Amino acid sequence: MKRKSLQGNPCPVARSLDLIGDWWSLLIIRDALAGTRRFSDFQKSLDVAKNILSARLKNMVAEGVMRLEPAADGSIYKEYVLTEKGKALQPVLIALSQWGNEFMYEPGELGSVMVDTKDRQPLQKLQLVAVDGRSLKPEEITTKFGVAH
């Protein structure tokens, strides 16, 4: 069954999920942010079928989330590198990680935490902040339709 495209949807959440809404795409981006660049390394890390990985990488290149470059070591291989559009997904992954740490683990269960590379301390929890600096609660946020940016 072919999935319905949300590309023309007026909701930015729907459009974003159309591109990166399956778990493999987000895990590929997670690994790329951590420095993974080669197809074989993504495949090994994720233990995903090659056809699925190939399709996701091809789509992310076509959509400008990643680009293919010659291997940094001068070999004949190609490497997948995040573009600025791809790197801009990092806060999404941090938000998912923080939410998962808060709600998906039992007390004392081992997991992972994103930390600052300089002092190795956990990142401050992402917050929704108004233009005037106020921290916002979910009930203080609504949707307004208009020009996207």
Rank of each mutant, 00 (worst) to 15 (best):
L53K: 01
S75V: 00
R56Y: 08
Q43F: 02
Q43G: 04
L68M: 14
L53Y: 01
S45N: 12
G35L: 13
E79Q: 11
S75P: 10
E63V: 05
V61G: 02
R38D: 01
F42A: 03
A88S: 15
I52Y: 04
K87E: 15
Q43I: 03
D73S: 02
E63H: 07
E63T: 08
K44H: 09
L68G: 12
L33S: 14
Y80N: 00
L68P: 12
E69F: 03
V61H: 01
L33N: 08
M60R: 02
F39Y: 05
A62E: 07
A62C: 07
L46G: 00
L82N: 13
T36C: 08
N59Q: 14
L53W: 00
L57I: 15
S75F: 05
K44C: 07
G74S: 10
D31S: 13
E84W: 14
E69P: 04
K58R: 15
N51V: 09
V48P: 00
K58H: 12
Q43S: 11
I76G: 12
K78H: 12
Q43W: 08
A34C: 13
N51Q: 09
A49M: 07
S54R: 06
M66E: 04
D47Q: 09
M60G: 02
I52H: 02
S75R: 07
K78G: 07
V48F: 07
L68R: 15
V65M: 11
K85R: 13
K58I: 10
D31W: 04
S54E: 06
A71T: 08
S40I: 03
F39S: 01
E63S: 09
A72M: 09
G35P: 05
E63L: 02
D31A: 13
T36F: 04
R37H: 04
E84I: 10
V65F: 12
V61M: 03
I76A: 14
T83H: 07
A62K: 03
L82F: 15
S54Q: 06
D73I: 00
R37I: 04
E84Y: 14
G86K: 00
R67P: 04
K44W: 05
A55S: 10
S54N: 09
K50G: 13
F39D: 02
G64A: 10
F39K: 03
A71M: 09
K87L: 15
G64P: 08
K78N: 13
R38Q: 13
I76Y: 06
M66D: 01
V61C: 06
Q43P: 02
R37M: 07
R56M: 02
V81G: 00
Q43T: 05
K50T: 09
R56D: 03
V48L: 05
I76H: 14
M60D: 02
S45A: 14
K50R: 14
E63G: 08
A55K: 11
G64W: 07
I52L: 03
A49S: 08
L53N: 00
L46Q: 01
F42H: 00
M60T: 05
A34V: 08
M60W: 03
R38S: 05
A71V: 12
K44M: 07
I76L: 13
V61P: 01
T83A: 10
